[in-house]
């Protein structure tokens, strides 16, 4: 038995339990906030780099889905337990994979992502370098018009310009 796409899509939608499809007005709830402002600031920074799994494209810091709430609380618990920022992220990644990291890790799979822009820039620079090299030695100023050319142009310009200028 194969479910038609429509049904699967519906189920996928329903599975996002309680996921709000829009930006919520307020995601982080006051009850979650840690009393230690330094830790809280770290928690906010970490949460804004972790993707909410059930939302369309939001960090857990921006989402008011229940799972995002749970993960925010978890992040704060780990911080209180003395984890470093990297350890907290590792903890979440160990369970949900690299998908949760909004800043992709620097691994083999992402080399192209991280080096791509630089490579593009270098390639473009090289192309421009070739462009300049080809014209090196040639003065940018054009050669003066030959007599023949001068004659033709004076014929061209000699006739009063028969054109209308709309103003």
């Amino acid at each position: 038995m194969k479910l038609p796409f429509g049904i699967l899509a519906t189920i996928a939608m329903l599975m996002m339990f309680g996921a709000d499809m829009q930006h919520p007005a307020i995601a982080v709830e006051p009850s979650e906030v840690l009393s230690n402002p330094v830790l809280e600031a770290r928690a906010r920074a970490i949460s804004s780099e972790l993707r909410c799994l059930v939302c369309q494209n939001e960090s857990i810091d921006e989402s008011n889905a229940p799972l995002a709430h749970d993960l925010r609380v978890l992040v704060r618990k780990r911080l209180l337990a003395g984890d470093s920022n990297a350890q907290v992220k590792e903890y979440i990644v160990a369970r949900y994979g690299n998908y949760v990291l909004l800043k992709p890790p620097f691994i083999e799979e992402t080399y192209i992502l991280w080096f791509g822009p630089l490579a593009l820039l270098l390639a473009a620079t090289a192309a421009v370098f070739v462009f300049y090299k080809r014209s090196a030695g040639v003065p940018p100023d054009p050669a003066p018009l030959s007599d023949e050319e001068s004659r033709s142009i004076s014929i061209l310009l000699g006739e009063p310009g028969e054109h209308e200028e709309t103003r």
Partner: peptide, 19 residues
Amino acid sequence: QAQAHAARTEIHRRMLAAT
């Protein structure tokens, strides 16, 4: 004047090419 001369020469050439 020199820059203007060069610019004019180029434009003249374009006119000749177009024609």
